[in-house]
Amino acid sequence: MIEIGKVQTLTIERITPIGAYLSDGFDTTDVVLLPEKEVPKNSRAGDQIDVFIYRDSKDRLISTTREPKIQIGEFAALKVADITKVGAFLDWGLEKDLLLPYNEQTVKVQKGRDYLVNLYTDKSDRLCATMKIYPLLKVDAPYKVGDWIEGYVYQINPEIGAFVAIDNLYHGLILIKDANSDIHCGEKVHARVSEIRNDGKLVLSPNKKAYKEIPKDAVAILTKLNESQGFLPYNDKTDAYLIKKEFNMSKSSFKRAVGKLLKEKKIKITERGIEKNGK
């Protein structure tokens, strides 16, 4: 059975001028097209190939050898490529961007920003994204009080706090009293577990007390790195004015914080700037 929204191994049934028709190897009448430009050279009928199934601009099932950034049922932080009358469109690594309908948005999204979404099929069997991921997350995360975690803010309630998807999988919450005023949906956060509730959900603390083992300036640099895909174009030769503007700290404070992060092997310095280890 050919399944939409998944990478699967299919069999080439026949090759035509417009591409190869693929089946699951059992029902040879149920086929999907792999466009000619994506058919590997020297392919023949009977060969197997890994492809992702989705719908093209005319809502026809089609396959691609490109690997998407998200598959059905998964979570991923995707960048908003465009905003139209029907909703936002996200870059998920394929030619046709992924629709995030307005009624599936928990906040008004902004072009160029990343937002955590889940991939699902709508009533018309079309692939769409949703930001309404609260009921999809799990409890009983493998963390204890004091552990550091990373996750994405996926919703903000001004009376409760910022909801965080830990590891894009588990429930987390930064209480409103601990949340920064400029925290936003789509932001990647680094926080410490301060409480494990009876229901298994984790309360997180990114405040100064939680960062006791990591000085404030080092935390600021790590946060900027997380927001910039693990790279920042700054080093000890960068003008002090730019350091102050970007990090709100003096150049000497910046150099001390970088030195501590280097010692702890959290970052590395290259000719281009700072890179986060394990990014």
Rank of each mutant, 00 (worst) to 15 (best):
L78I: 04
K79Y: 02
V80A: 03
A81Q: 05
D82W: 05
I83Q: 03
I83T: 07
T84Q: 15
K85Q: 12
V86H: 07
F89W: 10
L90D: 02
D91R: 03
D91E: 13
W92H: 10
G93V: 05
G93C: 08
E95I: 07
E95L: 09
E95A: 09
D97P: 08
D97V: 00
L99W: 00
L99Q: 00
L100P: 00
P101F: 00
P101R: 00
Y102W: 12
E104C: 06
T106G: 14
T106R: 14
K111C: 09
G112M: 09
G112K: 09
R113T: 05
D114W: 08
D114H: 11
V117Y: 00
N118K: 06
L119M: 15
T121R: 05
D122I: 03
K123P: 00
K123N: 12
S124E: 11
D125G: 08
D125W: 04
R126S: 04
A129Q: 01
T130M: 03
P135I: 08
P135F: 15
P135W: 13
L137Y: 04
K138R: 13
V139K: 11
D140F: 07
P142I: 12
P142M: 13
Y143Q: 05
K144R: 12
V145I: 14
V145F: 07
G146Q: 12
G146F: 11
D147A: 10
W148H: 06
E150I: 08
Y152Q: 07
Y152M: 04
Q155R: 07
N157I: 12
N157G: 13
P158V: 15
P158W: 09
G161K: 04
A162I: 02
L169T: 12
Y170F: 14
Y170W: 15
Y170V: 04
I176A: 09
I176M: 09
K177M: 09
D178L: 14
D178E: 14
A179R: 02
N180R: 15
S181V: 14
D182P: 03
D182H: 14
D182C: 07
C185R: 02
G186P: 05
E187R: 06
K188P: 02
H190G: 05
H190D: 12
R192W: 01
E195R: 14
E195W: 10
E195I: 08
R197I: 11
R197F: 09
D199V: 10
D199H: 13
G200Y: 11
K201V: 11
V203S: 13
S205Y: 04
N207I: 05
N207D: 13
K208E: 12
